[in-house]
Write a protein that binds this DNA or RNA. Structure first.
Lengths: 157, 157
DNA sequence: TTGGCTGCAAAACTTTTGCATTGTC
DNA sequence: GACAATGCAAAAGTTTTGCAGCCAA
């Protein structure tokens, strides 16, 4: 990849006359240290409890997530337990998710066919696509034993 | 359609040893009085401010939405402005949505091809599909003039 | 030096819940 | 008459915001 996430973030900030602060660097660094999906609370747990001088406050983390999203570095992909789940958008190929209703696992997949179908549909409606979000829910390989009767949330015991 | 939503709701409640109350009837009635999408707050506005003796409290509306979803009468289709958006599930064909980032319009569409692609993908992953949610966001026909640069939320003036 | 940024605490919002009362079956 | 349901108010949980002090450019 040509430009690092930090660098891309810096460029984005520059265009808005905003500053690359110590805190913003810490956050983008932490966010891109692994490819795992995460939600705000998880990031807060990792950053707001540090004692090594790299602590970042809850408010700043929320403010940064909005900025990182706007910068195109991360995107919201799903909702779990009433929280938005984020993932890398920059330097990561377009994909969608299979979400297990039982264990919560997110499986990524990519399908060019879906992109094509969506483009066709959009054309028919005079719609200009900017993005999409596709969550397929069900049971993953490991949890694949028939559930009671219907797709429920999490209140299977 | 063979059975009315009220009737289907009553049957569902019976299987759970729960009761068809005046409030639940009012709610299912209001929900199925139109095919529009709605969120909890909108329903509350319509029901919690009535003075004609058909008022229903906020708590009861939230409790009923969960029940109606469990009964398969409605389903959550999208998120807008931090709220879940519901639509009819019963007596309504499977479909997905084009969501306009500017005016918020929800356009429904159906594509058998998407269903087929998803089934193929699931098969490849040993995944058992229970449902999906596909939101395509962008600009609708009417709003289709190029935005500044990138997909933002609602902070275009 | 200036204007943006952070952290804190408080607020804002949506959704859930405990409990006394009411009502369905 | 038993037990589920309602309404209220309070709580819970996530996300946002006002403001004083701080800091990047």
């Amino acid at each position: 990849m040509a430009v690092s996430p930090e660098e891309k973030y810096r460029e984005f900030l520059a265009t808005k006359n905003q500053r690359m602060t110590r805190e913003r660097a810490i956050i983008v660094d932490e966010v891109f240290s692994s490819h795992e999906h995460f939600d705000a609370e998880q990031l807060i747990q990792r950053l707001a409890q540090r004692t090594d001088g790299r602590r970042v406050s809850r408010s700043t983390i929320y403010r940064s997530l909005a900025l990182l999203e706007e910068a195109g570095l991360i995107r919201r992909v799903a909702r779990q337990d009433d929280r938005d789940v984020f993932e890398h958008d920059y330097g990561y190929p377009q994909h969608d998710h299979l979400i297990c209703n039982r264990c919560g696992t997110l499986l990524e997949f990519h399908s060019e066919e879906i992109t094509q179908v969506l483009e066709k549909v959009a054309r028919e409606h005079g719609f200009r696509i900017e993005g999409h979000r596709l969550e397929v829910n069900g049971l993953c390989d490991r949890c694949c034993r028939p559930p009671e009767t219907r797709p429920k949330k999490l209140n299977l015991l």
